[in-house]
Design a protein around this nucleic acid. Structure first.
Lengths: 215, 215
DNA sequence: GTCTATATGTAGATAGAC
DNA sequence: GTCTATCTACATATAGAC
C-alpha cells in the first residue's frame, strides 16, 4: 500500500499542485476582503472577483462563507504564534530577560512580518475585526489565547507582586494598543501630524506597555 | 410670529411628543443592534423588531440604514464629550493637575455613564466598531477627534519633553485600551480568571496609561 | 405620523456540464 | 478541479392606504 494514498475513507488523496495554488489564491483574496469589510460586509462574489476565480471555486475550497473566514484567520495564526514563541526563546537566551524583552518578543514579530509581506498587514486588520466582535470569541480563544497564556505567565515571573488579573488586563490593553498601531496608522497621523519611522513607533509601543505594566 | 413655528421653509414644525418618543425608541434599538452586530450584520428588520415598530417607521425616522447609523453614533457623542470636558475643568480646579488626572477625566466618564445606564455600554461597543473600520473614519473624526485634540494638548503641557507624535500615539493606545476594557470584559476574564471590582479595573487602566506616557 | 404591501436588487448556495 | 447557470431567501427601500 502506497503512503499518501490512504484507503482510509476519511482521507482524501493529496491535492494537486494546481489545486493548492488555487486554494492559496482563494485564501489570499478572502483575507484581503474580510480584512477590509469585515465578515458581514464581505461577499463571496467580492472574494471571487479578487481571486480571479469563479464563485463556485470559492465555495469548493472554502466550504461556505463562515468556514472560509475561519480558515483565513487560522492560516497565519500558527506561523504568528511560532514566530512569537521563537522570539521569546531567543530573549530567554540572553541572560536577564526583562519585561521589555518579553513584550518586544510578543509584539515585534507582527510588525516584522508585515514589513516583509503586506498581506500580514491585512491579517492584522482581520484580527482586529475578530477582537472587536464577540461573535468570534471562540476563534480568538482557539488561535490566540494559548500564546497569550504563555506570555502572561512569563510576565508574571517578572512581576511577582502583581496579581494575575492585573497582568491579564495589562496584556489585553497591550494587545489592543498593538492592533491599533498595526491597523490605524491614519488615525494616529490625523491626531498628531507626521509620524516617525515605523521602528520608532514599535519601540514607543513596547516602551509604553512595559512602563504601563511596571507602573 | 411665534417662535418655534418658523415660516422658514427649511424648518419643520416641532415634532409631537409621541413622535419624539418613537424616535428615541428607534435610536435605542438601532444602537443596540448595531452595537452587537456591526453595521453590515445588522438589518433594518432586526432594529424594527427590537424597537417594536414596523419597518416603515424605522425608515421614516432614520432616513435609511446609513443615516440611522450616523445618528446612533452622533446621539451620545455630544453628551460624552461634554462630560469629559467638564471632568477636565474640574481637574483644572484642583491645583497641580497631573497626567493621571487628565487621563482620568477622559476615561472615567464613559464608565460612570455605563454604570448609570447600560445603553452606554452598548454605545461603547458601537464606538469600538467605528474605531476598527476605516469606512467610518470620518465619523470618528467628526465626533471624537475634537475632544481628543483638547486632551492631547493638555497632556503635552504636562510632558514638555515628549513630541506631539508620541503623545498622539500614546493617546491612541490609551483609547484602544479603554475600549477593550469597556467592551471585552469576557476576554480579560478568560485570560486572567476572576476580575476585581470595576472601580479597580478603571483605576488600573488609568494608572497603566499614565505610566505608559511617563515611561 | 404610522403601518402594509410590494418593488427591486443581491446575497449565499448548489446542480450539473465540462 | 473548474466553471456556468440558477434557485431560494432576504436585504433595503418606497408607494400609498390609513
Amino acid at each position: 500500500m502506497k503512503p499518501d494514498q490512504a484507503t482510509d475513507a476519511k482521507r482524501k488523496r493529496a491535492p494537486s499542485k494546481r489545486s493548492l495554488a488555487t486554494r492559496a489564491r482563494v485564501l489570499d483574496a478572502a483575507e484581503q476582503v474580510f480584512a477590509h469589510r469585515g465578515f458581514d460586509g464581505a461577499t463571496i462574489r467580492d472574494i471571487a472577483a479578487e481571486a480571479g476565480e469563479p464563485i463556485g471555486t470559492i465555495h469548493h475550497h472554502g466550504g461556505g462563507k463562515e468556514a472560509l473566514f475561519h480558515q483565513a484567520v487560522a492560516r497565519r495564526a500558527e506561523a504568528l504564534a511560532r514566530t512569537r514563541l521563537e522570539a521569546l526563546e531567543q530573549a530567554r537566551g540572553g541572560q536577564a530577560m526583562t519585561l521589555h524583552d518579553i513584550l518586544d518578543a510578543f509584539m515585534r514579530p507582527f510588525f516584522t512580518l508585515s514589513a516583509e509581506d503586506p498581506r500580514w498587514r491585512d491579517y492584522a486588520r482581520l484580527v482586529a475585526f475578530v477582537s472587536v466582535d464577540d461573535r468570534w470569541r471562540d476563534l480568538s480563544a482557539q488561535y490566540f489565547d494559548p500564546t497569550a497564556a504563555v506570555f502572561i505567565a512569563e510576565i508574571l515571573l517578572q512581576l511577582p507582586d502583581v496579581s494575575r488579573q492585573q497582568v491579564a488586563a495589562g496584556f489585553v490593553f497591550s494587545v489592543s494598543a498593538m492592533l491599533a498601531l498595526l491597523t490605524s496608522k491614519n488615525r494616529i497621523g490625523d491626531l498628531g501630524a507626521g509620524d516617525g519611522s515605523e521602528e520608532e513607533q514599535i519601540a514607543h509601543l513596547v516602551r509604553f506597555c512595559a512602563a504601563g505594566f511596571a507602573g
